[in-house]
Amino acid sequence: METTAERMLTGNKAMAEAIAQEMERDPNVFVMGEDVGKYGGIFGSTEGLLKKFGPSRVLDTPISETAFIGAAIGAAAEGMRPIAELMFVDFFGVCMDQIYNHMAKIHYMSGGSVKIPMVLMTAVGGGYNDAAQHSQTLYATFAHLPGMKVVAPSTPYDLKGMMISAIRDDNPVVFMFHKSLQGLGWMDPIDAAIGPVPEAPYTVPLGKAKVVRPGKDVTIVALQMMTHYALEAADRLAEQGIEAEVIDLRSLVPLDRETILQSVRKTHRLVVVDEDYRSYGVTAEVAALAAEEAMYDLEAPIRRLAIPDVPIPYSRPLEQRIIPGPQSIFDTVVKLMEE
């Protein structure tokens, strides 16, 4: 019997490996963005790529997001498979026209005759006091607009497998990676930011949620950091005799409705946790799905945890007040179980 020690990688290295393997496999794949070359991406997503592939396929861009994201669209229409990095998702404001009016709509407007096989990867998330313009996730902002897939993996394994799927997908994919889950040396060390990642290329399908902890009493639907917080809360809930089932959404578009509904039909209780603004957001979408399709399976009201509708404040006690965490998830579930 062959025993192989599992290879452990950080989130950023898993992503960079996925991109490197796809660049080896397909000469049409290339990367561009700010500081993706020598620096290897501010959040390490392109680490080592410049060395491997040179500046003709790993392009540092000027601070001209409209130009290079627009150029990715144009190149994709010509058969290239660009990966463009928007350094922080918060910067989408300067280039959103290219993203939602063009990248997302060209396939539809052309009646399917023009395809845009590109990946727009971007860093999301707060929790380290980077304040209002550098801490958002904006999951729902992107997921609201039709025509682009939107994924948000939570583990190194999924970061690699979903990046490979995203690159091979013939549609535009917004690939959101969470800064705290990149395993970077200069951020808060988090166990979940490092995990087993096979070396050989593999794919993880886009549009499939994952039950990351089975349970029978309550369903907690989450994504990225909130998945890990939900798992922490679930451990503590188990000590109280409450078995929570935790679902990691992984993908917002397409949304895996079946996995959510199956779980709700089993547990009869639903809590949705999101690191995005509350109103008109992911929590509302998942709650609406449950209300529409599984209303009579629910034994208690649906509960939502998200950022109250305020910009992300800088000061530590203020930021901690507004981002959901293990404690607020735990409290919410305990209260819900009493209803």
Partner: peptide, 16 residues
Amino acid sequence: FGKKTGLGKGKGGHMH
């Protein structure tokens, strides 16, 4: 420093 006495009561921070 993220303090209440700050220009933005701690909401903005060094870039804002």
